[in-house]
């Protein structure tokens, strides 16, 4: 048999350059950061010690108070998410290129992008001097911070609607409002509702830390307990955060499945958020 030569493999420049960039970035970070790595040796022992202190003798007497604080966190997330949706819905229709012109859509999208970049905690820091150390600060931080993500998810849904019902609406002589009501809304409502719930789940995590900087909710209790080495309270608080978050995730997730059931909606791609 004569030797066969395979066709020459093309050099994947995109891949090579990306890989190189990542390697350089990692090395730069490793050299640049002055980390006391030796502290890692004690870390498992320290963590174990703190773990025993926190969870070793949990006191059920701490529960009601902390559960109430967790409820406040959940409330902050829910009201904040609703406020965000209230703004994101109308804005997202203006950001959909199939409903409005490109220039308007572009401007609204940049607003979404800017809002998306800033973490809620930073917003909360800015709002504290105005609204004080109250849950309302957390609500507004989450409300403003979620407009961007929700808006982006919403306009992607709007842009993926089917044109057929719109054509039917045109053919019966419908005006713009009727066209919107029956051609667009029924197609986007289930997904939008489901995205609001999804964002609520994400915001539970954000609101749980609002308290670390004093903006209401359970984070405040946990932060104080850790600062004053009140280990049992911190442990109970952490446990409640974990259980509460998982519980809300489960309920909201089940509701989302029900809403989307029977439609061809694409699953939420976290990677696009």
């Amino acid at each position: 048999m004569s030797e066969l030569s395979l066709p020459k493999k093309a050099i994947d420049w995109f891949r090579n350059i990306t890989t190189l960039a990542i390697v350089v970035a990692v090395i730069w970070s490793l050299i640049g950061l002055e980390i006391r790595w030796e502290r890692l040796i004690d870390l498992p022992a320290d963590l174990f010690l703190i773990g025993t202190l926190m969870f070793g003798n949990l006191d059920i007497a701490d529960f009601p108070n902390l559960a109430g604080a967790m409820w406040e966190s959940i409330s902050i997330a829910w009201v904040g998410t609703l406020i965000a949706a209230l703004f994101a819905i109308p804005l997202s229709f203006l950001a959909a290129e199939n409903l409005v012109g490109r220039p308007i859509a572009w401007v609204i999208r940049q607003v979404f992008n800017i809002l998306r970049a800033v973490p809620e905690v930073i917003l909360a820091i800015a709002l504290i001097p105005i609204f004080g150390l109250t849950p309302l600060t957390g609500v507004l931080a989450i409300g403003i911070g979620s407009i961007g993500t929700l808006g982006k998810l919403f306009y992607e849904v709007i842009e993926s609607i089917k044109k057929n019902p719109l054509e039917a609406a045109d053919a019966v002589g419908a005006n713009k409002l009727v066209r919107f009501r029956w051609g667009v809304l029924p197609q986007v409502m289930p997904e939008m509702t489901s995205f609001v719930l999804y964002r609520f789940e994400v915001n539970i995590r954000a609101s749980a830390v609002m308290g670390l900087i004093g903006a209401g909710g359970i984070g405040n209790d946990v932060a104080l307990a850790l600062r004053f080495k009140d280990w049992e309270v911190a442990g109970m608080g952490l446990l409640i955060v974990i259980l509460g978050t998982i519980l809300v995730d489960a309920i909201s997730g089940a509701a989302r499945k029900r809403i989307i059931k029977g439609t061809q909606a694409k699953p939420i791609e976290l990677a696009e958020v």
Partner: peptide, 24 residues
């Protein structure tokens, strides 16, 4: 699931408690 339910800043606070203030 447990790891995922703890928010970023809370992780930071826990580790600050465990290993002290710093970048670690």
């Amino acid at each position: 699931n447990v790891v995922r339910s703890i928010p970023d800043l809370l992780w930071a606070l826990l580790f600050v408690t465990a290993v002290g203030i710093g970048i670690l």
